[in-house]
Design a protein around this nucleic acid. Structure first.
Lengths: 229, 229
DNA sequence: CGATCGCTTGATTCCGATCAACAGGAGTGG
DNA sequence: CCACTCCTGTTGATCGGAATCAAGCGATCG
């Protein structure tokens, strides 16, 4: 069953009384979201927002993971991006969301009114700059992903993906993939079978180890890096 | 031979004396670039800026066309975007260009100091907003292109590309492609042969007509649109 | 316990890449 | 002017990687 629950709504008037805590600086987007955000809980596979919906809020992942995706008319799906804890998503300049966002696992997400953030940005050039920087970061990620989609073969795609995940999770060489194979496939422009086969190949080549299908150990980073050389 | 020539540098002090003309409002990015920009001339295939170079300027295409691309270590190339007359490119938040830009045809390009524009943005929230909007527009284009690269087959890719070009050039149903087949191929994640073959197929299917290899007539838009359904 | 779900593996097909040749201009120089 | 080369684009033949179709396996759950 899908459940969405507000956990700890914060009274706006209470904000000024709060002492600043690390990472909760009202002069940064991240801090502002922490301070003003309402914690919401989403079940696995629950939609956070849908294609075409009004972009009323912006979001920050507290725990769990989120996928941004687009379903084409014929049912094919492209996963545009994954978002991990600490990352902001759903920021739009226009009024509507162009993609949908879904919780990959059960997730806790901070939700803030977009209008509130835009009002902050209008008063404070630094905040406005940070919004721009967030968009730029998204742009860079997507541009990098274009190289993956346009230039790489299956093995290179999967290797790049695993390295990317390891980097973002900062957990040295052991990664816990929150998403199923189908999400990885739709992210990399492959089929689920090809993703599965390729990971088996990488395991047989001793480049990675798989404790379970979701727990991956990077055994030979050099080999993985060399693939996208 | 590659030539780069400044055509009509504009004295900054002279700006205030100029009467505002249509599209030359100092309160818009576009207008500011028109007013402050130095017209530069680039020869076909000349580099406007290179990967890793300092992002000192931002650019607006006056005439001709520009490709933004990335060369991978092994020589493969991904064309990230094409820029047509009227469009701004080369805007970066960070200090360096992550991609290179090259003139596809002989081109005239307005060049403005990035620092000048950023200074304008710091004083004027509207300008800052427009910078953000420009980045957002790039982001949306690239996100759309991800769907092309990740989900479509060759025929769909080429059809989508042609429709896109027709839309941007606003020349009803006849388009003059400024770029060679190789650029299209690297943009769509295909080979030059596949692009060529696919266009021939579309011609045989009476979906398009080719006066020359660069002049395309869209004969059956419905058929083209239906391909990416 | 059967049922469903996520993943893997096998067999076969097919689309696009690759290798190769050629055609039509455009520009160059004798 | 023609012969030449260079460049771009087209076409053909073949190959290979990923998609597709199909089956099976282990885990979780009602």
């Amino acid at each position: 069953m899908l459940t969405r629950t507000a956990i700890a709504p914060i009274n706006a008037k209470e904000l000024s009384r709060r002492l600043p805590r690390p990472g909760q600086d009202i002069n940064t987007i991240m801090g502002a979201v922490e301070l003003m955000g309402v914690r919401m809980s989403y079940a696995r596979n629950e939609e956070v927002f849908g294609q075409g919906e009004a972009a009323e809020y912006i979001y920050k992942v507290v725990s769990g993971a989120v996928r941004i995706c687009k379903i084409l008319d014929d049912g094919r799906r492209q996963v545009i991006a994954f978002h991990m804890p600490g990352e902001i998503f759903g920021l739009e300049v226009e009024e509507d969301h162009r993609f949908s966002a879904e919780a990959i696992t059960d997730a806790v997400i901070l939700v803030v009114k977009r209008s509130t953030v835009l009002a902050l940005a209008a008063r404070d050039g630094h905040i406005a700059n940070q919004l721009w920087a967030l968009t730029t970061q998204d742009l860079q990620r997507v541009q990098n992903h274009m190289l993956v989609l346009g230039c790489m073969n299956a093995k290179q795609k999967v290797a790049t993906f695993l390295l990317q995940m390891a980097k973002r999770r900062c957990t040295s060489d052991e990664i816990e993939l929150p998403m199923p194979r189908q999400d990885i496939a739709d992210y990399l422009g492959l089929t689920i079978e090809t993703v599965s086969r390729t990971m088996t190949q990488l395991e047989n080549a001793a480049a990675i180890g798989m404790t379970t299908s979701r727990r991956i150990v990077l055994r030979d980073r050099a080999a993985l890096v060399q693939l996208n050389a």
